Simulated assay, not measured.
Amino acid sequence: MARRYGDYPNIIYEIANEPNGPVNWNQHIRPYAVDVIDTIRAHDPNNLIIVGTATWSQDIHDAADNPLSDPNVAYALHFYAGTHGEELRSRIDYARSRNAAIFVSEWGVSQATGDGGVFEQETRVWIDFLNDRRISWVNWNLSDKVESSAALAPGASARGGWTQAQLSESGRLVRELIKERP
Score class of each variant (00 low, 15 high):
41 R>S: 01
111 Q>F: 06
81 A>D: 10
12 I>V: 12
146 V>L: 15
111 Q>Y: 10
151 A>P: 00
106 E>L: 15
38 D>H: 15
47 N>T: 11
77 L>D: 14
93 D>N: 08
39 T>D: 11
132 D>A: 13
109 V>R: 08
181 R>N: 13
21 G>D: 02
82 G>I: 14
65 D>C: 08
80 Y>F: 14
148 S>P: 03
10 N>Y: 12
54 A>F: 00
44 D>T: 00
11 I>N: 02
104 V>E: 04
149 S>L: 07
159 R>C: 11
28 H>T: 12
14 E>D: 07
107 W>H: 05
7 D>I: 03
36 V>D: 00
139 N>E: 08
152 L>Q: 12
64 A>V: 13
167 L>A: 04
54 A>K: 03
89 R>E: 14
102 I>N: 00
98 R>E: 10
67 P>V: 00
110 S>G: 02
42 A>S: 04
35 D>I: 00
3 R>P: 04
101 A>H: 10
81 A>C: 11
20 N>K: 06
68 L>V: 05
88 L>Q: 15
40 I>W: 06
148 S>M: 01
32 Y>H: 03
155 G>F: 12
76 A>M: 12
99 N>W: 08
48 L>R: 02
62 D>F: 12
33 A>L: 05
51 V>G: 08
160 G>Y: 06
143 S>K: 12
38 D>L: 15
112 A>F: 10
159 R>K: 13
139 N>Q: 13
103 F>R: 05
34 V>A: 11
